[in-house]
Write a protein that binds this DNA or RNA. Structure first.
Length: 244
DNA sequence: TTGATAGGTTCCATATGGAG
DNA sequence: CTCCATATGGAACCTATCAA
């Protein structure tokens, strides 16, 4: 909300003032900027760079006067910095921040401007978003695995875990797969299978008890899925291990 | 966000074989 | 023979995943 108020003060009101007095006009490609910011938020560097280029192109062709061009760039920079704050990214010290606007007027060519914006802002921001996303994915996956390893003896559903970690189940499913290479349910069943094998080999627990512990509704189901994975039934598996 | 789909789970009926 | 654990098959049902 604060951000919104600030943005309105800086851009909209300011912009309307200028427009009404008709002292000069700066054209500004809002739609493109929106696309650019979405690309940055999504960590899509390629698209971000493409959008940046398109924005500058638009600003450049619509503001023939070099002064207008620089004003438009300053405005754009303003928005970029706001985005940075919204995303919680700190690329510069405060003093540096003030000097940024001076730098605009030292940029001689279109290419200079594009490279400067790209290298100083857009790319680093996109990188940070990506790095953060990676770390977060890793974190979330680790959390899920931790839960699975500790609670495989109780009912485990993606919905329940999603609720606990405050994420959408679909989202969780996709990032888990991205990180681990297998889906949540595959991971859970393979972990349970792993535990079943070690119990069969190392304990005298009855098959039906193992089935119950692993949250199968009845032993038939456990036997069925075990056989599917292992090729032999739990009873046979145990015999085989015993005779070794 | 949604709907379709594939694969997994459950329920029910039934078979086999060992123990009492 | 009866009881129990183990094992299989088929149909209904459910759920995670994926693509749109």
């Amino acid at each position: 909300m604060k951000y919104r108020l600030k943005a309105e003060n800086k851009s909209i009101i300011f912009y309307e003032d200028l427009d009404q007095k008709k002292t000069f006009k700066t054209h500004f490609p809002k739609q493109l900027q929106h696309e650019l910011f979405d690309a940055v938020k999504a960590g899509d560097k390629e698209k971000a760079d493409k959008c940046l280029h398109a924005i500058l192109q638009a600003i450049f062709t619509q503001n023939t006067n070099p002064y207008q061009f620089q004003i438009a760039i300053a405005r754009f920079l303003n928005h970029v910095i706001e985005l940075m704050h919204v995303l919680g990214i700190e690329l510069f010290e405060l003093e540096e921040n003030k000097m940024l606007y001076d730098q605009i007027f030292e940029l001689k060519t279109f290419e200079d401007t594009e490279n400067w914006l790209k290298n100083e802002f857009i790319d680093p921001m996109t990188d940070k978003v990506n790095a953060r996303a990676d770390a977060q994915y890793k974190n979330i996956s680790d959390n899920i695995i931790h839960i699975i390893h500790h609670e495989f003896e109780s009912e485990l559903t993606l919905d329940e875990i999603a609720r606990r970690l405050h994420y959408n189940p679909n989202y969780l499913s996709s990032i888990f797969k991205k990180e681990m290479g297998i889906s949540f349910s595959e991971y859970v069943s393979s972990y349970r299978h792993h535990m079943a094998k070690s119990w069969l080999a190392e304990t005298d627990m009855a098959v039906k008890d193992i089935a119950e512990k692993l949250k199968y509704k009845n032993s038939q189901n456990f036997i069925r899925s075990f056989k599917k994975l292992e090729g032999i039934t739990p009873g046979n598996y145990r015999q085989q291990k015993r005779s070794m």
